[in-house]
């Protein structure tokens, strides 16, 4: 399970970074989104991967911490998702404004000279 998880994070982060370095704003925002998925999975993984363990204490089971998953990284992921979502939406608006003002979707606001 760990290997699959690690490969998934690696592939997403790799594609994200590649897209981030592309010259079009849409590619950049897609890259940022992929990268943030990878980061969210990574935070989740920092709680150690467990199967069948809830992060919330169950009244019918004992309070032994070994029975439960670590709730903190899950809370962190939730916060990170919310913040990432909001900021991506904001970036999208700026991106549209840049497209409207400069007439191009190049990140520098102008097309590179043709050779």
């Amino acid at each position: 399970m760990e290997v699959v998880f690690a490969i998934a994070i690696g592939v997403m982060a790799g594609s994200g970074i590649y897209l981030l370095l592309r010259p079009r704003t849409f590619q950049v925002i897609m890259g940022l989104s992929l990268l943030s998925y990878a980061v969210n999975l990574f935070i989740f993984g920092m709680a150690r991967l467990r199967i069948g363990a809830a992060p919330v204490i169950d009244a019918t089971r004992s309070a032994d911490p070994a029975l439960y998953a670590d709730p903190v990284p899950q809370a962190l992921v939730l916060t990170a998702i919310v913040i990432g979502f909001a900021v991506t939406a904001l970036l999208l608006v700026v991106l549209l404004a840049a497209r409207g003002l400069s007439g191009t979707d190049h990140v520098d606001g102008r097309e590179p000279e043709q050779e």
Partner: peptide, 8 residues
């Protein structure tokens, strides 16, 4: 907007 995009 151009520099703001880079900044963000």
């Amino acid at each position: 907007v151009k520099t703001g995009l880079h900044y963000i």
